[in-house]
Amino acid sequence: MKVQGKAFKYADNVDTDVIIPARYLNSSDPDELKKHCMEDIDKDFVDRVEPGDIIAAGKNFGCGSSREHAPMVIKACGVSCVIAETFARIFYRNAVNIGLPLLECKEAADAIQAGERVSVDFEAGLIKNENTGKTYRAEKYPPFMRRIMDAGGLVEYIIKK
């Protein structure tokens, strides 16, 4: 699978409370919740995000609560993948389980700037900055997680199994 989109750039330790604030979690409807994605650190995100866009961030992306609503709203906004130096572990698990691709790559996460066009080839594990022409190699998923992702998430994987 290949995707391409413009980048949104964030710093280290983007927590699940800013990805989707708890005050909205009296609902679990992705279409309602996605209106508030990132609003506490980036008010314009929901107006500017388009299908295929990419989030690039620093260390420990998705730290904090276990709320699956966090990867759920990022996916519902149309974001095609998140590239970060590292991910918080519950967020990482949740993203795998619901089929939101994540790529760990410090060099790409550092270099990509807000607004740049980025393309990703998941099979090859390659990230390309279309503005600068530079390419980066990301950590590939272990085969077990790849199978969950290919099935479309953990629920679909268990049904298939």
Partner: peptide
């Protein structure tokens, strides 16, 4: 499905937070 599930480690259990799908 709550990140503070790690609390029960105080009892000598392996206990960890996960998401709703898990």
């Amino acid at each position: 499905a709550d990140s503070h599930t790690c609390t029960y480690g105080a009892l000598g259990a392996f206990s960890t937070g996960v998401g709703s799908t898990d």
